[in-house]
C-alpha cells in the first residue's frame, strides 16, 4: 500500500497542472452557468453540462500519462522500481478517476444549486418558456444520482478501454498506434453489444429497482439506469484487469 501511495502521489503531482486547469475550468463554467439563473433563467444555465464532458477526455489523459513515461524516458526509472507493473498502471488509473470524481462533485454542487434556483423560478414564474418542461421538485438525491449515473456511464467504460489499449500497446511489437485505435473501436463495440444481455442479467440478479430520477415532466422514472452504471463499472473493471495483466506480462523498456 505504501508503494501504491507513493506512485499515486507522484502521478497526482505530475498531473497537477492538468488538474488545476480542469478544476478551474469546471468552476469557471459552473459559476458562469449559475449566474445565468435569475428570475428569468437563460439558456446559459445549460452550460453546467459542459464539465461532464470531461468524462470523454479523461481516458485520453490516462493514455497520455502512460505514453508520457516513454516519451520522457522515465519508464526506465518506473520499470526498475521493486513493484509489480500493474501497480504502476493502477496508480495512474486511480489518479484519473480521482480527478473525475472531483470534477463530478464540483459540477454537481453547482448543478444542484442551479436546479434549486430554477425550481424556485418555476414556482414563481409558471409561464416561463422552457421551464414549463422542468420537474419542479427534483430532489438533491435525484440530481446527484442522475448526474453520477450519466458521468459514470460515460467515464468508466472509456477508462476500461483505455487501460486495455495501454496493455495491448505494450504487447504489440509494431503498429502500436493502430492497435490502440483498434482497441477503442472493438471496446466500444463490445460495450454496446454486451449492454442489453448484461443489464438484463443484472436485473434478474438484483431485481427491479425503480429510481425516481425524473428530471423532466412526463418522463417515466428510470428503472435500470443504476444497473447501466453497474454494467459500466464491471466493463471498466474488465478493461482495467486486461490492461493490468498485459502490462505486467509484456511491458519492457
Amino acid at each position: 500500500m505504501r508503494y501504491f501511495a507513493a506512485l499515486y502521489m507522484k502521478e497526482l503531482r505530475a498531473q497537477r497542472m492538468v488538474a488545476a486547469v480542469l478544476l478551474l475550468g469546471t468552476l469557471g463554467i459552473a459559476v458562469y452557468a449559475l449566474t445565468g439563473v435569475g428570475e428569468n433563467p437563460s439558456a446559459r444555465a445549460a452550460l453546467i453540462v459542459l464539465p461532464y464532458a470531461s468524462a470523454l477526455g479523461l481516458p485520453f489523459l490516462l493514455v497520455h500519462t502512460i505514453s508520457g513515461e516513454w516519451t520522457a524516458q522515465t519508464h526506465y526509472q518506473i520499470l526498475a522500481l521493486p513493484v509489480p507493473r500493474w501497480m504502476v498502471l493502477l496508480a495512474k488509473v486511480a489518479v484519473v478517476l480521482s480527478l473525475g470524481l472531483v470534477i463530478y462533485v464540483c459540477s454537481t454542487v453547482f448543478l444542484q444549486l442551479i436546479s434549486e434556483r430554477m425550481t424556485t423560478a418555476f414556482v414563481t414564474n409558471k409561464e416561463g418558456g422552457f421551464l414549463s418542461l422542468m420537474e419542479p421538485h427534483a430532489s438533491a438525491s435525484s440530481v446527484w444520482g442522475f448526474a453520477g449515473i450519466v458521468y459514470g456511464v460515460l467515464l468508466l467504460p472509456l477508462i476500461g478501454i483505455a487501460c486495455a489499449a495501454a496493455g495491448v500497446r505494450v504487447m504489440a511489437q509494431r503498429f502500436k498506434g493502430l492497435a490502440t485505435v483498434g482497441v477503442f473501436v472493438v471496446g466500444g463495440y463490445l460495450y454496446a453489444k454486451l449492454q442489453a444481455p448484461v443489464v438484463g442479467a443484472l436485473v434478474r440478479i438484483f431485481g427491479e429497482w425503480r429510481l425516481d430520477l425524473a428530471i423532466h415532466r412526463g418522463m417515466e422514472p428510470t428503472s435500470d439506469a443504476h444497473l447501466l452504471l453497474m454494467y459500466s463499472a464491471l466493463f471498466a473493471a474488465l478493461g482495467i484487469g486486461v490492461g493490468a495483466l498485459l502490462f505486467e506480462r509484456y511491458v519492457e523498456a
Binding site: 507522484k10 505530475a14 520522457a72 524516458q73 522515465t74 519508464h75 526506465y76 526509472q77 526498475a80 522500481l81 521493486p82 523498456a253
Partner: peptide, 15 residues
C-alpha cells in the same frame, strides 16, 4: 529489483 540500483545511460529522472 529491490536489491538492484540501475542508472541507465539516458536521463530517466522526472524533469
Amino acid at each position: 529489483r529491490r536489491v538492484t540500483a540501475y542508472l541507465p545511460e539516458v536521463d530517466a529522472f522526472y524533469a
